[in-house]
């Protein structure tokens, strides 16, 4: 949190059929539907999150990610980072408070990978869902499906991974926790964090800009990941791969798709990162093991299936 960026705040995804997507994110993944706005967008949160929402779905004619946002400490930090981004040469856009219901002013910028990111300082906090903040019980008893606990990170594909890492490091204070280096020494995968997590967002090199690989949600245990896999079969949901383990970050994971083809992950465990840690390196020639630690080969979908 070197520059005052605290944590991931929200992700807005495009879906082809809104109500079909609501069934997926609410009833299968167990997110809580918290709001619908005048534009028809649907807002969700995971039950351990204090904010009113962390996932927004918008119906559109092509799926993918509209933007991912991070929360910063306060409005002074937001002003400072906005001018820092402009000075760095980023294309920056002001989004007025209330454009997303319950969210304050947002500063949107385009990363060198082509993705839209946002910073904000204020969002309505409704508290953890279903448990009190005083003498809280362990978990609420009426959760659905996979019972996802929090929106954790996104993996994004695009060009200029090195430049993305530099921007997030130098302007926004992120650390490079894990990296993929090709035989020529180029940074082709960057897993970056503002806190102790192995990644808050990750970039993988790909020529086409602004490609969405997945949005990931945290579960507590391996048993929960296995149970998520059972639910994927019970609901005949499109699966990608898993349950398995990643080499990168060492998370235990399953990948699957929402009804519009946006990839989701639920995972548990994984590495941690302190600011004095050297980045963990995986060699691009061993990417199979880096991505799928047990199979040790990539499935073709990991590299080519994007929205």
């Amino acid at each position: 949190m070197k520059k005052g960026v605290m944590r991931p705040g929200h992700v807005q995804l495009r879906v082809l059929d809104l109500e079909e997507a609501v069934l997926h994110y609410r009833d299968l993944m167990g997110l809580i539907e918290t709001h619908r706005d005048s534009q028809g967008r649907v807002y969700f949160k995971a039950w351990t999150e204090v904010d009113k929402f962390s996932v927004v779905l918008r119906e559109a004619d092509k799926p993918g990610m509209d933007f991912m946002a991070f929360k910063v400490l306060n409005n002074e930090v937001l002003d400072q980072l906005e001018s820092d981004l402009i000075a760095y040469g980023c294309e920056v856009e002001q989004i007025a408070a209330g454009e997303l219901d319950g969210c304050g002013r947002r500063v949107r910028f385009v990363a060198p990978s082509g993705h839209n990111f946002e910073l904000f300082a204020e969002k309505e906090q409704t508290g953890k869902w279903g448990v009190s903040n005083v003498n809280p019980e362990a978990w609420p008893r009426n959760l659905k499906g996979m019972k996802a606990t929090r929106f954790d990170h996104c993996l994004l594909y695009g060009p200029n991974v090195k430049e993305c890492n530099a921007l997030f490091r130098d302007v926004l204070g992120f650390d490079l926790a894990e990296q993929v280096i090709d035989p020529e020494g180029n940074l082709v995968g960057a897993f970056i964090t503002v806190g102790m997590k192995a990644h808050d967002v990750a970039f993988i090199d790909s020529p086409e800009p602004n490609q969405f690989h997945h949005a990931s949600f945290f579960l507590e245990t391996w048993e929960d990941v296995l149970r998520a896999a059972d639910l994927i079969s019970m609901t005949d949901t499109s699966i990608d791969i898993g349950p398995t383990r990643h080499g990168l970050t060492h998370g235990k994971t399953i990948y699957f798709f929402d009804p519009s083809g946006n990839r989701n992950e639920v995972f548990c465990g994984g590495d941690y990162h302190y600011p004095d840690h050297e980045p963990v390196t995986w060699k691009a020639e061993d990417l199979g093991k880096a991505i799928f630690y047990h199979d040790r080969v990539l499935n073709e979908r990991f590299l080519s299936v994007l929205t």
């Binding site: 082809l16 092509k62 799926p63 798709f257 519009s260 083809g261 946006n262 979908r301 080519s304 299936v305």
Partner: peptide
């Protein structure tokens, strides 16, 4: 076979 959801184009 890609996403099976009309999203990836594979």
């Amino acid at each position: 076979v890609g996403c099976r959801g009309g999203g990836c184009g594979l």
